[in-house]
Structures are given as structure tokens and as C-alpha cells.
């Protein structure tokens, strides 16, 4: 009986010992991913801000600009890309996004739609038909919106949707943010000429009509992200964003006019919601990368020790010899 128990314990010990690395290095990279059906909204505000009035072409101080950002996972589009990709094991996420900017009166300032396609596990961009920013086809390099799971303390390539360029976003240190250890990243996009948004707030003014006057749009930003490293999710973000219109007959005798200037920050209730979500998701990732692998290793060691102890006890010289199935030796018969 003890022998059988030893063997069962040994089998469980090997099961746990084998499961530990398999979970960390085989299951984790395949199971932990950004879900294809994720729907997420974010509200950012710049208060106060400077905004151009396209009627007078003059910059005005306004009390607040609000940016509503929606990311919507398009499951049908991701399945289609996976099918066309030929590699059925690849998980692709398609995010249809919209950055909708509205002024203090609630009226449209600009709207920039985009489609971002990426690998659900590594967050590497995937190039497929439909990848775009404001209707223009783009081919992203680097990450956007989210960092990879198990973010490292290093610089990453980050795609800037306004300038349609990829620039490094620098790791600047670890900080404490609302009970979480987060990595702080910062990217500076220097003054760059960028396309005018396809949708402008005044009827009759189109990007083509502005471009026809020789006026160009320029942009610079300092982008700041505080990223929770286990999930790779930003828990807070800020942007010091400036846009100018330069040159052309539209500005009269002026060289340039500020189109937008403001320090954009996440709204407080969205920060709280994001931190709560990231805290819950962080536990699930840690379960696969740390809690279960280490727990299983400890359990394996305990089970093995128990199996060896039982085996040693069954072999102790003082203990009665284990019963055998053999028949007793025949004894000589005394007549």
C-alpha cells in the first residue's frame, strides 16, 4: 500500500514540476493576449487650451478642449486577416479607433479615425489591407496605445498617428502611481509638417482648400505614459501638444498661427477606472508568469519529499517485511 502511495505521489510531483515551466514558457505566450473583442473609451482634457477659429483664422483661448478616444476590437476583420495570413495559429487584433475632439461649446474640432492591426501576444504591428490613419494607408512600425506584456526597462519604438512616423519612446525610470509600480516613458516629436485632418469644423473649408492657399500644418508634442509593466497597459497619459498653421495666403501677413495648444491629461474618473482594470488584469498575468509556476515547483518538491519519506519508511529494518504473494517454502514432514 505504501509503495502504491509513493508511486502516486511521485507521479503528481513530476506532473507539477513539468507543469511549472510549461505554463511559463509554453502556455503563457500562447494564452495571454489582448482580446479581439475589446471595447474601450478614454476621455482626455486640456484646460485651458488655445484653439484656432477657422472663421477668422485667429487663435483663441478656450476654457477646455475634450478628446474622446474610442478603441473597438473588430472581430470579423481580425478573423479575415488571420485566414488570409495562412498561419492559423497567429492571433491578430484589429482596433478601429476614433479620436473625437470637441470644443467648450460641444462642437466638433476634429475627428481622426484610424485602424490599428497588431499581434495579440507581442503587440507587434501586422501589416494588412485597411491599416490607416484618417483614411490614409499607413504601415506602422513599433507599438501604439499599449506596450507588450512584461514590459522591459528600455526604449520602445512608438508610432505617432499625427505625423505618421515611428520614433523612440524613452524609458525614464520607475515610479509609484496609485498603488502600482509603473514605468515612465516619454517621447518628443519635434516640429513636423503633418497632413490636415480630413474633417474640419467649418463647412466649406476642406484640407484641399487650405492646401491650395499654400498654408501647411505643423505639429510638435511631448508624449508621456505611465505603464504598468506586467500587463503593458498605460494607467495614465499626458501630452503637451502644439499645432500651428504656417505660411500661405490664408494667414495674410502672419507667418504662423496657433491651431491648437494645450496640456492634455486623462480625466480623473477614467484614471481610476483604468487603474482598477489594470490591477485586476495584472493578477491574471502574474498567475501565469509567477504565482502558478513557483507554486507548482514548491508543491512538486513537497510531494517528492513525501514520496521519498514514505519509501524510506517502508524500507526501515525494524519494520515487518512486506508481505509477498509467494507460497511459503515447503517444510520437511516428520513422520
Amino acid at each position: 500500500m505504501r509503495r502504491k502511495a509513493c508511486l502516486v505521489l511521485l507521479a503528481f510531483a513530476v506532473f507539477c514540476a513539468a507543469l511549472s515551466p510549461l505554463l511559463r514558457w509554453y502556455a503563457f505566450p500562447r494564452l495571454v493576449k489582448v482580446p479581439a473583442d475589446r471595447y474601450q473609451t478614454m476621455v482626455l482634457e486640456a484646460a485651458p487650451a488655445t484653439l484656432i477659429d477657422y472663421g477668422t483664422m485667429r487663435a483663441e483661448k478656450v476654457p477646455k478642449i475634450t478628446i474622446v478616444q474610442t478603441l473597438k476590437g473588430n472581430v470579423e476583420a481580425s478573423e479575415k486577416i488571420e485566414k488570409n495570413d495562412g498561419d492559423s495559429s497567429r492571433d491578430v487584433v484589429v482596433w478601429d479607433g476614433l479620436s473625437y475632439v470637441q470644443g467648450p461649446d460641444g462642437k466638433l474640432v476634429s475627428r481622426i479615425p484610424e485602424r490599428y492591426i497588431f499581434d495579440a501576444h507581442s503587440q507587434e504591428p501586422v501589416h494588412a489591407r485597411g491599416e490607416s490613419v484618417d483614411g490614409d494607408p499607413v504601415e506602422r512600425e513599433g507599438i501604439e496605445f499599449k506596450w507588450p506584456f512584461l514590459t522591459e526597462k528600455r526604449d520602445y519604438a512608438y508610432f505617432d498617428a499625427q505625423a505618421r512616423v515611428t520614433e523612440p519612446i524613452h524609458y525614464k525610470g520607475t515610479q509609484r502611481f496609485r498603488g502600482l509600480d509603473v514605468y515612465y516613458f516619454e517621447q518628443t516629436i519635434p516640429w513636423t509638417e503633418v497632413p490636415l485632418p480630413k474633417t474640419l469644423p467649418v463647412k466649406g473649408i476642406t484640407p484641399q482648400s487650405i492646401a491650395g492657399t499654400g498654408t501647411t500644418r505643423w505639429y510638435t508634442t511631448v508624449r508621456k505614459f505611465w505603464v504598468e509593466p506586467v500587463t503593458g497597459a498605460p494607467v495614465y497619459g499626458e501630452e503637451i501638444h502644439r499645432e500651428e498653421l504656417r505660411g500661405g495666403t490664408l494667414l495674410g501677413d502672419r507667418d504662423k498661427v496657433t491651431a491648437f495648444s494645450g496640456h492634455v491629461k486623462m480625466r480623473e474618473d477614467y484614471i481610476e477606472d483604468t487603474v482598477d482594470l489594470v490591477k485586476s488584469q495584472r493578477v491574471l498575468v502574474l498567475l501565469m508568469t509567477s504565482y502558478l509556476p513557483w507554486g507548482l515547483l514548491v508543491l512538486a518538491a513537497l510531494l517528492l519529499a513525501l514520496a521519498l519519506w514514505l519509501e524510506a519508511r517502508s524500507r526501515r529494518p525494524g519494520d515487518p517485511a512486506p508481505a509477498t504473494d509467494r507460497d511459503p517454502e515447503p517444510q520437511p514432514a516428520n513422520a
Binding site: Y26, A27, R30, L31, K33, P35, A36, D37, Y39, T41, V43, T66, V68, T70, K72, G73, N74, V75, E76, S78, E79, D96, G97, L98, Y100, Q102, G106, L108, R111, P113, D269, Y270, D273
Partner: peptide, 23 residues
């Protein structure tokens, strides 16, 4: 790992053009 996680469905929620009151 072969079974994987279910993919789910595209959310019926729209891309927002108004400011939501709360998350």
C-alpha cells in the same frame, strides 16, 4: 493552449462622438 480563449464578438457600442459622463 489548443482550445485557447474564445474570440467573442464585435461590440455593438459605437465609436463615441459625445463626451461620456463616466467610464
Amino acid at each position: 493552449t489548443a482550445i485557447g480563449a474564445p474570440t467573442g464578438e464585435t461590440s455593438p457600442e459605437p465609436l463615441l462622438t459625445t463626451v461620456p459622463e463616466h467610464p
